[in-house]
Design a binder for these strands. Structure first.
Lengths: 221, 221
DNA sequence: GGATGTCGTACTGTTGAACAGTACTACACT
DNA sequence: AGTGTAGTACTGTTCAACAGTACGACATCC
């Protein structure tokens, strides 16, 4: 694989996995489409073995399904996938918020501050990252690396959907709205009103889900 | 790789991943030990590329850490890992139980019946599988394939610890105890007493965790 | 005409050998 | 001590090959 810099920060396999992930999530590789190893290898100028390794990464990340002797097929941003994705977040975040203690909210405060800082930048990528980092910090309160890495898996996929949202959704043009959705959570958390914080988070996430789904539907039609 | 039957149900890579997982979880591969590709390939009589693919599966399953140009190192069943593993289960199962509806308990009933059936068999592997399947059925009520596959990931690791438990723990010799722990959950669920079912599940899981940790400690010493 | 064989093609699964690049160790030089 | 400098042991990646499997097309049989 091409590598302009002399320093290799990531491996070919990882680059390839990222590339494929982006193609799948952006729809360039259509849902259900078979992913032929040799084709990908030829197109990208890498070895078939390298493609296989990359596909294994995607598989565990849930982006492709791999059937023996049939290879990998791309899964797609169907409504069900989105539902599962967002519902998983609700489960994790609500549990985290409900069990939060005062000493734990430090990192969440920090992530929130960062989000405020970036909100006006207009840089979609940074906003989305800060958004996800905020929610990641909430999950981090569970203090469970297992769950956290599960969330990060979801997060990677979410990133693409959210980029979409930030770029195309009017609502997101007003940074105040981006912020206010998170402030209600933050306020409740600060006040130690955990049950309410969880409820706010649930509705915040549901709200976002609805918007992503609507956007998705409008694109398909 | 050897394959007695003419039918190939799993691929070499998967067998290899399972084999390595077992070695790691059973302690045959000591924590922090480097996993040299060529050594494994030579020992098992498979190609190095095949080993790499298997290692990628383990990596995403959390059983090894992979550093660029340094290869894979085995992680180990430390108390923290166990804590995370079991706490993840508590989070998921309690949420599932709390949100259960009457129509959903069918599969759980079925899994429970199966567990009763196997309890007296004395076959450790079958008991553990039935046990995990029961808890899997509970998680299944969430109707979230994403979460379910996360649980299955945990499940695979848990399997080894539990095998250990069933074989070496006195408590498990009496099948009545195996069953009763699950019956309390089942009863509460049947009665529609969801909050209690969740509490029972939490204590059941915590109880098991404590036993596994004790066992682990006694082995190390 | 529908069920059942049989081929051929297009892949996947797996191997073995090769080579460049990197981490780590030991040893020499100042 | 502090800094080169090999040397060694792997990893990262590629390539070419072959066996085995899935699937579609076509032929056969009743």
């Amino acid at each position: 694989m091409i590598e302009g810099q002399s320093f290799r920060r990531t491996t070919t396999v990882q680059q390839l996995a990222d590339w494929l992930a982006e193609r799948i999530l952006s729809g360039a590789i259509t849902p259900g489409q078979r992913l032929r190893e040799s084709a990908v290898a030829a197109e990208l100028g890498v070895a078939r073995n390298t493609v296989r390794e990359a596909v294994r990464i995607l598989e565990l990340g849930g982006l492709v399904r791999h059937e023996v002797n049939r290879g990998a097929v791309a899964v797609s941003p169907t409504p069900e996938v989105l539902d599962d994705l967002y519902e998983s977040r609700v489960i994790l975040e609500c549990t985290a918020l409900r069990s939060a203690t005062t000493e734990q909210i430090g990192p969440v405060e920090k992530a929130y501050a960062q989000l405020l800082e970036v909100a006006d930048s207009g840089n979609a990528h940074r906003i989305v990252s800060a958004d996800l980092a905020f929610h990641g910090a909430i999950i981090g309160m569970l203090n469970n690396s297992r769950v956290l890495s599960f969330y990060e898996q979801l997060s990677r996929e979410l990133h693409f959907y959210l980029m979409y949202l930030v770029v195309r959704d009017r609502e997101f043009e007003q940074s105040s709205i981006v912020v206010s959705g998170h402030r209600t959570i933050m306020d409740a958390l600060r006040a130690g009103n955990l049950e309410q914080a969880a409820a706010e988070a649930a509705s915040h996430i549901e709200h976002n889900k609805a918007r992503v789904k609507a956007l998705l539907a409008s694109v398909v039609s």
